[in-house]
Design a protein around this nucleic acid. Structure first.
Lengths: 250, 250
DNA sequence: CGTTGGGTTGACTCCACTCAAAAGATGTGG
DNA sequence: CCACATCTTTTGAGTGGAGTCAACCCAACG
């Protein structure tokens, strides 16, 4: 299942394509130089691999450079709750440092390229880089807010709106990452994933998804999803279609 | 609704009763001296007051010294999702610093005493106190994990177990705070609060709560709740009854 | 090819919601 | 101390959204 392949060819942080995006804060030279040293290397992971397991102590910290992952909890009865999706720029494994062991697991949805960071050297951040320390807290706060929005979605919205909100949430995130082309985004999620994300059964997801497609609001062919009318979908989803929020990137 | 009353009599941080609890890290002298200066004063809030409102920019940071609060989102249709309960030691308003404005609101459940901190001086933490910076990130990570557990609970557990999990979660938290006496805890939640916490209707909460009481697992008289058999309830709730996790306290 | 994982559909069930009414509780002002 | 309003809890009846079970289709793949 889990297959981690260390990479030899790495991208220098200075020329990182992600970092150039306007949603991210611009690091100064000292910070950038440190991040470069903080980074151990890169890693490729196949789709469907477990990257971190709940209860374990991860050896490294990661950032997603390319691809999608998700964080999840397994329930006693074998059920699964997906806590959040992770997209390029997102941090993986910060929990370990703070809470001792991972409380949740992380799995890749697509083939993924990760940046790998040294866990020991994270303390250097707190000791010498105030702004980066702030960014770490900021990242944690962003992560928390994402889960909060998901909780409100699952707890208080009917399945149709719930699904619409999921699509629009991803649409907005990917917009900030410049990963929306003509209203079309990558859609690596199976209906099982969607069910575990939204607290529904797969059968019901199938029906609701079909209803959403038949309503003409979205189109779905293979692993690509097109939002036909983002404004209308956002209305149903109950999310405002503001520009994506700025986020930290280590 | 909102009534904030500044207090004159304040407790010095060195002799803070909370800080003595074993769940908290021991601060060194420099840190403690700083926190003392970081703290502006204390504040009393009546039960049912809005302390922070979504969309606004809070002037201060708070810590709960005594009493309960909750964080919540309002939905378009007027519904409410409670994101988490806040107990003594919990931070209020960190989001503002990170995300610009509050994304959620905060309201008091009981009469509450808050410690008030200067927002500007939070930067001093990042600049001069690495360990406290870490603690801030740690606090954010703890907050996130709490919401994650709630999400899994709401998304993947039937109402009976869901309610049991809520009770046991609180029981454990309060145990760490030495606020459990003979298996009895304060219970300031109305059935409406429980409904908004668990993603249920008030009517259904009433029936499930009654079922839980009739099963003999808990007792409820007025505003006090007794867990008759913590082990059995934890079993149903699907949570392990480990000792409460260590948490940061600024 | 057979196998496997994902998607689709129908029939049936049930958990949780809505609507509605009424009985405590609590609080306020006269 | 009573009258009245409001909040909270309780209970019943009826409905419906979402779950389960089961079968089948399809595409990918070894």
């Amino acid at each position: 299942m889990a297959r981690l392949e260390p990479m030899s060819t790495t991208t220098p942080c200075q020329r990182c394509a992600l970092r150039a995006l306007p949603i991210y804060r611009r690091l100064n030279e000292a910070e950038l130089a440190f991040v470069e040293k903080f980074k151990i290397g890169e890693m490729e992971v196949q789709a469907g691999s477990d990257i971190l397991l709940a209860g374990t102590h991860s050896a490294h910290l990661f950032t997603i450079y390319d691809g999608w992952c998700f964080r999840y909890d397994l329930m006693e009865d074998g059920g699964r709750q997906i806590l959040s999706l992770l997209l390029p720029g997102d941090f993986i494994g910060l929990q370990t440092e703070m809470l001792g062991t991972m409380q949740h697991s992380v799995q890749s949805l697509t083939d993924v390229r990760l940046c790998v960071f040294s866990r020991e050297r994270i303390w250097t951040i707190f000791e010498r880089f105030p702004q980066l320390s702030f960014d770490l807290t900021w990242a944690a706060a962003c992560g928390e807010r994402t889960v909060e929005v998901a909780l409100a979605n699952v707890g208080r919205r009917p399945s149709f709106e719930r699904l619409a909100a999921l699509v629009m949430h991803l649409y907005r995130q990917l917009e900030g990452l410049r990963l929306v082309k003509d209203g079309t985004i990558l859609w690596p999620l199976t209906q099982q994933h969607i069910a575990d994300l939204l607290g529904l059964s797969t059968v019901h997801v199938n029906r609701v998804l079909r209803r959403l497609i038949n309503s003409g609001l979205i189109r779905l062919d293979g692993r690509r999803l097109t939002v036909v009318d983002p404004g209308a979908l956002a209305e149903i989803a109950g999310v405002d279609l503001e520009k994506p929020l700025r986020r930290p990137l280590i």
